[in-house]
Design a protein around this nucleic acid. Structure first.
Lengths: 341, 341
DNA sequence: TGAATAAGTCAAAGCGCTTTGGAAATCTGA
DNA sequence: TCAGATTTCCAAAGCGCTTTGACTTATTCA
């Protein structure tokens, strides 16, 4: 069923039917309800492409998901972020188009999205400390919102980000207050902006107590379970092993826990762990008492909000770049306790 | 840059330029190379929507991701499946459009995708034992491939699925061979087809040894870490606790492990766990020796193949439904051992 | 009552592409 | 050399929608 048929059936022109359906005022209420009823009956929906051609808008948002070309790793937080963004889109009748691309081809993927006119805007995932995509997207002129930030970017851009620096500063202080002095940081790759900022926060908290960061206690790698495990093992093997660990993801924390258990140590007594908790839907951090003490910020909610920001940006192109910092809550769970002595 | 401009610049008609770019034979090689060079120089790419309008094809595939309306859970295997499918699409120049929808609105989502002409085909995720979507998609006439199967479906359809029955039958037999007699099944929701089949396999293996399944030892729920943990705790509290556990997902297995460790039991000695391992990129099941004994089948590879099947189906619409069963490997890791006595 | 205004509707153009049905130019063979 | 075949190119239609500008018909006011 298309517009032509529908309007023929109704004995009206395409113009009138189109206007009736799109809520234009120059259509009488009588015809409007008649048209709407018919549209519903025949399950008529304007063809996406045709409408796009006519309006110049695609009603679609692009998400470019980078996969580490080396390890082929799909960041697990995407699933929840996208679920959140999807909620916003479906409410606004937008589609979401996903491009999975190894980071080497990323620039090309954005160019292509633009040239083919596939989307009206883009959400940028996983920004690096110095991310070339921000300049690129400015150049190609497509509205975008960054999930995260890029510390060394010079151009203005819209972003939504957890205050990672503050979160890890607070987490570190929390451990210091408990008497820990040997605190390890099991971070994500520090080319990633979020990891970079978390480290800054960690270092700031140490500095505030006059402590110097110990390079031996700082590791940085892809945040898989396996890496969390390996890193923790190595840390526990040090001559002066840490009494507390800060991990950058719930998943590394699980790996860390495995290493801790393996040594027969008790979490929260022999060693403390604080992690970042994205509130992944399949990894709820406990019910009543959180399993891990954590800096908590829902990535799903971030998805919802980032999508909404982008839609606003698209609706009003001469809006100045919007920024939305989110604070992570520091929640206390069973994985931390006073430093053993 | 669009076709009109490009052809004007080249002093050729739109027809010729279009044909040159699309590899039609009625264009001389000389003009073709000239046109291609110009296209590259101006980064010309045919507008998606316009091309779609003209050809009737969208060059896009729809993935409808159901989220459990009750718990808002996004199945974690989607991320890897989609990464795999994405590889296939980018090779074939297809886009992927994602719709995240609570299962109540699912039927409507498919109808909408069809009526708006957003996609050329659909991948169906998470089929139920009796899944209404198969009939629905037949009705609306959109090519589709199901990731998984629907045991009670009557209409023919294309699918790609792990042989879940066999996998869990083998896993159960493996545990029986080790002397285990109290074997628990921590399954996914058994309205889901994969979980239903795994249970059948589990029961078949027991029956083959003349054992009756014990309802107390069979639990079925969303496969989160928390549920794996809770289920295992309850199982360990039984008067006659199981000596072995079969879990349906790596993530439940992690929950199970937490419960086991908490009791001070040693995995592979005091209690054995076999899990299903989708080879999630962020949860590699160990490096040299697998952490968990597992039935293993890469969900990412499944994504690649399912996408390829769908593209074939789209290319040749009168192909009969294709089916692709995959065998899971049974890999032995550190989480299993002989039954304690 | 008639002119001015408002309300309701429509025909047609245009979005950027593919493709049909020629036409012009070039090549072939006797 | 010239009809016929072949190669190379093109104008125009059409995909399904929105939107401009104009045209009817109904309503209002002096």
């Amino acid at each position: 069923m298309n517009l032509k048929e529908l309007s023929k059936r109704l004995g009206l022109s395409q113009t009138t039917v189109s206007r009736a359906l799109n809520g234009f005022p120059e259509v009488s209420e009588a015809t409007r309800t008649k048209v709407q009823a018919a549209a519903r009956r025949y399950n008529y929906r304007p063809n996406n492409r045709a409408r796009g051609l006519a309006t110049g808008r695609t009603m679609a948002i692009g998400h470019v998901i980078p996969v580490s070309s080396k390890h082929e790793i799909v960041n697990p937080v995407f699933a929840d972020f996208i679920a959140g963004a999807g909620e916003t889109y479906s409410g606004a009748d937008y589609d979401m188009v996903l491009t999975v691309v190894s980071d080497a081809d990323e620039a090309d993927a954005y160019r292509k999205l633009r040239a083919k006119g596939t989307v009206d805007g883009i959400i940028v995932h996983g920004p690096k400390v110095d991310d070339a995509r921000i300049a690129l997207l400015h150049e190609i002129g497509l509205p975008f919102v960054v999930h995260g930030r890029s510390s060394e970017a010079t151009l203005p851009y819209s972003w939504l980000d957890v205050n990672n620096r503050r979160a890890f500063e607070r987490a570190t202080s929390f451990l210091l207050d408990l008497g820990h002095r040997q605190i390890a940081l099991v971070n994500g790759l520090e080319t990633m902006d979020f990891a970079f900022r978390r480290r800054k926060g960690y270092e700031a908290a140490l500095a505030a107590r006059g402590l110097a960061p110990d390079p031996q206690l700082m590791v940085s790698d892809e945040m898989t379970e396996a890496n969390g495990y390996q890193a923790t093992r190595r840390l526990l093997d040090l001559a002066a092993p840490p009494t507390a660990l800060l991990t950058s993801s719930y998943i590394s924390a699980i790996g860390a826990r495995r290493a801790v258990e393996e040594r027969g140590l008790k979490l929260g007594r022999d060693i403390s762990i604080v992690t970042h908790d994205d509130e992944l839907s399949y990894f709820r951090n406990g019910e009543d008492v959180p399993i891990f003490t954590a800096t908590r910020s829902s990535v799903r909610e971030a998805g919802r909000q980032a999508a909404a920001m982008l839609l606003e940006l698209i609706a009003d192109p001469d809006l100045t770049p919007q920024t939305r910092p989110l604070e992570a809550a520091l929640i206390v769970g069973a994985s931390t306790g006073p430093a053993p002595r």
